[in-house]
Amino acid sequence: MNALAGVLFHFIGGFASGSFYVPYKKVKGWSWESMWILGGLFSWILVPPLAAYITIPNFMDIIRDTDVSVVGYTFLFGLLWGIGGLTYGLGVRYLGVSLGSSIMLGLSMVLGALMPAFYYFVNPSPGKHGIDYFFSTTSGLCVMVGLLVCLLGVYLCGKAGMLKEKGLSKLSGKAETEYNFGVGIVVAIVSGMLSACFNFGIESGKPMADVANQLWKSLNPGQGEFLYQNNVTYVVILWGGFTTNFIWCTYLLIKNKTYADYGKPSAPNGKNLLFSALAGTTWYLQFFFYGMGESRLGNGASSWILHMAFIILISNAWGIILKEWKGVSRPTSRAIVWGIVTIILSICIVGLAKTLE
């Protein structure tokens, strides 16, 4: 039952992550940096402490009482994760949407899932799996199979995207003038590695989540693990993510003089504020439900794989709903359908792994 609940929570989180950009499409007359930093104020600064306060009223006391090194590393990984998110755009620019996204999401999935396991193999910790777990137990092997199947699904989705981009290029008679595989692959690797740092931040900040968990369990004996224990950790991680994005967006607002967007008479500023706030809040919800899913699955690798798989699945599903694949060739259609089916299969396999423990 815990496994089913965990998969469901990860689905809701993946749906939020895969859908958060839809409200941004309704923003009119503003630059990217204008809407992005405004949405970020909600997703990184306003909503996380509000969610933490509602679920863990004394969360600031937990942060203050935590060892400085724990808070520092958690913040640092949030900072690096923010850089990974910003370089994502460069990877797409030089490799194209499909190839760039596939490489970056695939790397983030693998590194985010397995790197903590290498750490815990060298530095064992109660309740944490080392890398040997994934090759010496039935459940661990099942997780690895699910990871490989999901990567196959990512490859198929990426192949579909490349076929689509190639077809559009032929139709328009234009080539991708900014395509640069050498530069793009370096940027994509950096972005994929740094994007995985969010999971590293969760692992680094686990002592804060453990305190929240123990406090809740002492008040609610015999009721299992605290669903919202990670909410205190998110506050610190997202401080780091906000720092990176705030510096970059402020630079762009000044450089491009787009700070004037907020008072632009021709723009629907009220609606833009509403849609940016909705996008930012929806974006945060992915991690709110991620924490709930992890509390039920109890395995960082499984949770991270499911989280990434659902993001890829929902993103591609939105592409179909919004008719982004309308009119593509039959091989392209087959590739995207098989990619989605394969990712769904991987979700089932990783979900099954929990029941085999």
Rank of each mutant, 00 (worst) to 15 (best):
residue 271 K to G: 12
residue 176 E to M: 13
residue 339 G to R: 06
residue 177 T to W: 11
residue 240 G to L: 07
residue 29 G to Q: 08
residue 227 L to M: 14
residue 142 C to N: 12
residue 305 I to M: 13
residue 201 G to D: 05
residue 93 R to D: 09
residue 151 L to S: 11
residue 354 K to Y: 10
residue 100 G to T: 06
residue 245 N to V: 13
residue 143 V to S: 11
residue 252 L to F: 06
residue 332 T to Y: 00
residue 107 L to W: 00
residue 102 S to F: 08
residue 286 Q to L: 07
residue 65 D to G: 15
residue 169 S to R: 02
residue 352 L to S: 13
residue 217 K to W: 08
residue 40 G to P: 03
residue 11 F to Y: 13
residue 55 T to C: 11
residue 255 K to H: 07
residue 41 L to S: 10
residue 58 N to A: 12
residue 292 M to Q: 12
residue 340 I to D: 04
residue 198 F to R: 01
residue 76 L to A: 14
residue 15 F to S: 06
residue 195 S to A: 15
residue 272 N to E: 07
residue 344 I to K: 02
residue 291 G to A: 04
residue 127 G to V: 07
residue 268 P to H: 09
residue 68 V to A: 15
residue 248 W to T: 13
residue 114 L to G: 02
residue 296 R to L: 09
residue 141 L to G: 14
residue 10 H to R: 03
residue 24 Y to Q: 08
residue 82 G to W: 02
residue 269 N to M: 12
residue 207 P to S: 06
residue 217 K to C: 09
residue 265 P to G: 03
residue 14 G to P: 09
residue 220 N to G: 00
residue 179 Y to F: 14
residue 306 L to H: 03
residue 108 S to A: 12
residue 283 W to G: 04
residue 271 K to M: 13
residue 348 C to W: 11
residue 120 Y to K: 02
residue 8 L to Y: 06
residue 107 L to Y: 00
residue 308 M to H: 07
residue 87 T to R: 01
residue 161 G to I: 03
residue 336 I to L: 04
residue 242 F to V: 07
residue 81 W to Q: 12
residue 20 F to Q: 10
residue 30 W to K: 08
residue 63 I to L: 14
residue 226 F to G: 01
residue 173 G to L: 11
residue 294 E to G: 01
residue 154 V to C: 11
residue 146 G to E: 05
residue 214 Q to N: 11
residue 51 A to E: 07
residue 240 G to Y: 01
residue 92 V to W: 00
residue 281 T to F: 08
residue 87 T to Q: 03
residue 109 M to C: 14
residue 18 G to D: 02
residue 129 H to D: 12
residue 77 F to M: 11
residue 306 L to P: 03
residue 343 I to F: 08
residue 227 L to D: 11
residue 279 A to K: 08
residue 98 S to M: 03
residue 205 G to Q: 07
residue 202 I to Y: 05
residue 326 K to F: 09
residue 214 Q to D: 13
residue 28 K to A: 12
residue 345 L to D: 00
residue 192 G to S: 09
residue 126 P to I: 06
residue 138 T to Y: 05
residue 85 G to N: 14
residue 52 A to I: 03
residue 227 L to A: 12
residue 30 W to N: 08
residue 78 G to P: 05
residue 24 Y to L: 15
residue 120 Y to L: 05
residue 284 Y to L: 04
residue 318 W to D: 09
residue 86 L to G: 05
residue 73 Y to V: 14
residue 186 V to K: 03
residue 212 A to F: 02
residue 39 G to F: 02
residue 216 W to T: 09
residue 68 V to E: 09
residue 168 L to I: 15
residue 335 A to N: 13
residue 112 G to V: 04
residue 145 V to F: 12
residue 206 K to H: 15
residue 5 A to C: 06
residue 346 S to N: 10
residue 313 L to K: 03
residue 72 G to S: 13
residue 291 G to I: 08
residue 306 L to V: 08
residue 355 T to A: 14
